[in-house]
Write a protein that binds this DNA or RNA. Structure first.
Lengths: 334, 334
DNA sequence: TTGTAAGCGTTATCAA
DNA sequence: TTGATAACGCTTACAA
């Protein structure tokens, strides 16, 4: 089908070694020869076979990304960051979803192993002991983004969820709110669920407010979870004046439910989101939210990874600073 | 480093051929032998080398996706559809961005060629003559999603932009609107720009309304483009009662600008979006929008592609039906 | 049921 | 400056 260096060699009257040298610009060949080879290659429509190259060089120039199966803009931003850096460094990105609740994680990791990706980025999925073991057994440089594990051997880059939640809730308190609900809390999620709940609780109790579990609505990061939470608050006539959400989408769910009942944000109730994803700027009103620098995290994480691949250096875990972006979804009381 | 079939063969006291047979479950070997080989493989932590397999079988079991460099939920949905089907059929997805305005398209295509992807999906990017030629020269089965080309040789799957725009604007007219603006129109975009403008104009003139170019704001699909458009409308005191947007994000931009000025949607002005992306349900008010079945399009397109890869059949282009999703951003006038 | 050996398209070593 | 040739790890006739 497609021409190989053998074909070029024959047509140009040189050896395959020379063709290889020319194509890879390794030098050590006559300029004349070079030109001739290039010309023939072009004429034959030659295209390098990456599989062959990978086989002998033992490097595929690919980076694998494993992420949850949800398709929020959260992941779009991170992916873009990763792809940008990868591209700049000559790496391709191979993407796979981990399935709902990580159901496909095992297969995903095996797949990445068989494809011999040079590096592996795992976004937002919570790895269990089994997963960690498998990951380590791959012997592939890796980094977790926006998640972490119990193991010290797995480097990560993420914001401090506990601290970020604390900051967000503290802000609400500083604005005069005394009864603050929480939406989308997932007590089964040890990474992004529990710490945010703890941060929420701690902020409350540090300020002498009591924690009322009735006003903590469990769920996930989705719009629907937020909506359901607000509907519950309304039904129960919860005496809250503000709600802290685990994601921007959940926050939009809150706002949406309010809109349906004629409750005004922030006049009647204040809302704080989490992520500073694109939708947080697009919402009505624009969301006050905890900023996770997603695109930058994708870039930085990928860069670390590539460094580690090339220099065999170890990646050190890093907690990246969060920031509260004040927009208009929180009302100051008094 | 990692064990090969050779290592297994030696350790199990069989030939590499037998190991290969066992690993690929090709049958024709003693059950005993099979068990022994499996055991040894497991013990050695064997992992198949896809590059080697690809090299001899001349198929990489990968599908390439090329998409614009923006990270909207639009692409997340399509990507998820593609990845789901790919995964089900044993293909991996390799992702690359085409750069702004397709600046990286040439490199992207070459990359996909060198990686010998079995199939190629190009999403939303407008291919010029040069790009088409390159694509065809690759000799790789392909399909365009949500875009098309001048060439009949490049199959696509997309909605009828002209018709969809017509439907949307007609709906506005049916609701009693007589002065309708348009936001995000891109006259340089022959695929998603011009046809939507034409559909808009045609609907207007078919209903005896005149087309006023002052009220067509150019831009792109972004939130900011929508916002700028609305700001211009306000500044110019354009006498419009509704605006048709080229994307949901642009529509949110319109709503956002209105919110800032205290203009109510849909009471003071009606808005129609395009895409039925996730944000359209999350907006306040929920957007009436043209539905492009993104996730399904990803699935269907990928399925067609895989069929074409496996059966060598030709993909026939398909215009998929659009639908107007009525929500709450349009007001009926009388 | 099993083994031998010839590729697949490259890179890379060693001679010439 | 060039060319033979041996890998790389696998699949796949063909033989045994």
């Amino acid at each position: 089908m497609s021409a190989t260096i053998k074909d070029i060699a024959k047509a140009a009257g040189v050896s395959i070694a020379t063709v290889s040298r020319v194509i890879n610009q390794l030098g050590g060949y006559n300029e004349e020869t070079g030109k001739r080879v290039i010309a023939v290659a072009r004429e034959l429509g030659y295209r390098k076979n990456e599989s062959a190259r990978s086989l002998v060089q033992k490097t595929t120039k690919t980076i694998g990304i494993i992420m949850p199966d949800v398709a929020t803009s959260f992941y779009g931003d991170i992916t873009k960051g990763i792809e940008d850096i990868s591209f700049e460094h000559g790496y391709s990105v191979i993407l796979t979803h981990a399935g709902s609740r990580g159901s496909r994680i095992r297969e995903s990791l095996n797949l990445m192993g068989e494809r011999r990706v040079d590096g592996l980025i795992i976004v937002s999925v919570e790895l269990q002991a089994e997963g960690i073991e498998l990951l380590l057994s791959l012997g592939i440089p890796h980094i977790l983004l926006s998640t972490k594990t119990a193991s010290e051997q797995v480097p990560y880059m993420k914001v401090d969820d506990y601290g970020a939640a604390y900051t967000a809730v503290k802000h609400l308190i500083d604005c005069g709110h005394r009864f603050i609900g929480m939406a989308g809390a997932d007590p089964e999620d040890a990474i992004a669920g529990v710490p945010r709940m703890e941060g929420y609780k701690q902020a409350l109790s540090d300020c002498g407010l009591k924690v009322d579990s009735h006003v903590i609505k469990t769920g996930d990061f989705s719009f629907d979870a937020g909506k359901r939470a607000m509907q519950a608050f309304i039904e129960e006539q919860a005496p809250i004046t503000a709600v802290f959400c685990v994601s921007d989408e959940a926050a939009l769910g809150i706002i949406s439910a309010c809109y349906e009942r004629g409750i005004r944000v922030p006049d009647d109730i204040s809302v704080v989101g989490y992520d500073n994803s694109k939708v947080s700027q697009m919402s009505i009103p624009p969301l006050t939210t905890v900023a996770q620098p997603l695109y930058e995290m994708g870039r930085a994480g990928c860069l670390e990874l590539i460094r580690s691949i090339q220099g065999k250096t170890n990646i050190v875990s890093k907690v990246i600073p969060h920031e509260l972006v004040i927009r208009q979804s929180v009302r100051k009381i008094l």
